[in-house]
């Protein structure tokens, strides 16, 4: 089976599931309307979800769960950090823009890495240089400026898990 067809089928069943969950009406006309809507979605935007040829693997599900748990924990830490900085009367900040090197190549993996960096303590992705694989990161409390150390401190938290999930 081609990848595109597989992606369309997955999108069809996902959108049908979302329709059933957000309407919660189990009657025949509602289900028919849902099937029509899911078909339209699958025809027009179906080929964008799955673009890799890799087989489904149980290990990737486990890595996804581990990534989500780690992400929510970092989100909590980030918010307490922001609350501490905002409440402090003297504003203890030391901002700067540093470089982070990454090993990821796919667009989806780079997007998820940038989003994770933005929602973790004290960092915000400003730009991505795709050719040299460098992320420019605004850091609210600069501890070191060397590229090796920043790569390990900022990117190392998520990079291995994202490499397992997306690459």
């Amino acid at each position: 089976m081609k990848t595109e067809t597989k992606s369309r089928i997955v999108v069809f069943f996902l959108s049908l599931l979302v329709w059933i969950l957000i309407t919660m009406v189990f009657s025949i006309p509602s289900l028919i309307a849902g099937v029509i809507m899911a078909l339209i979605t699958a025809i027009f935007a179906g080929e964008m979800l799955i673009i890799t040829e890799r087989k489904f693997h149980l290990k990737r599900v486990w890595y996804t769960i581990e990534y989500l748990v780690k992400f929510i924990w970092e989100l909590f830490k980030a918010n307490f950090n922001v609350a501490y900085i905002v409440i402090h009367p003297l504003l203890p900040i030391k901002p700067g823009i540093v470089k982070v090197k990454t090993k990821l190549k796919r667009d989806s993996a780079l997007t998820m890495l940038a989003n994770s960096i933005t929602l973790t303590p004290g960092t915000l992705t400003v730009d991505i240089d795709v050719d040299n694989q460098i992320l420019y990161v605004h850091w609210i409390d600069v501890k070191f400026t060397d590229i090796e150390q920043t790569t390990e401190f900022i990117g190392g938290r998520f990079e291995k898990l994202l490499e397992e999930i997306f690459e």
Partner: peptide, 24 residues
Amino acid sequence: FGVLGLVRLPDVYNRLQAATKSVT
């Protein structure tokens, strides 16, 4: 807290950090 950060912090990038994280 996020909105307080939007008012108190000194430049666009710091405001963006505090506000995006906390309000999201």
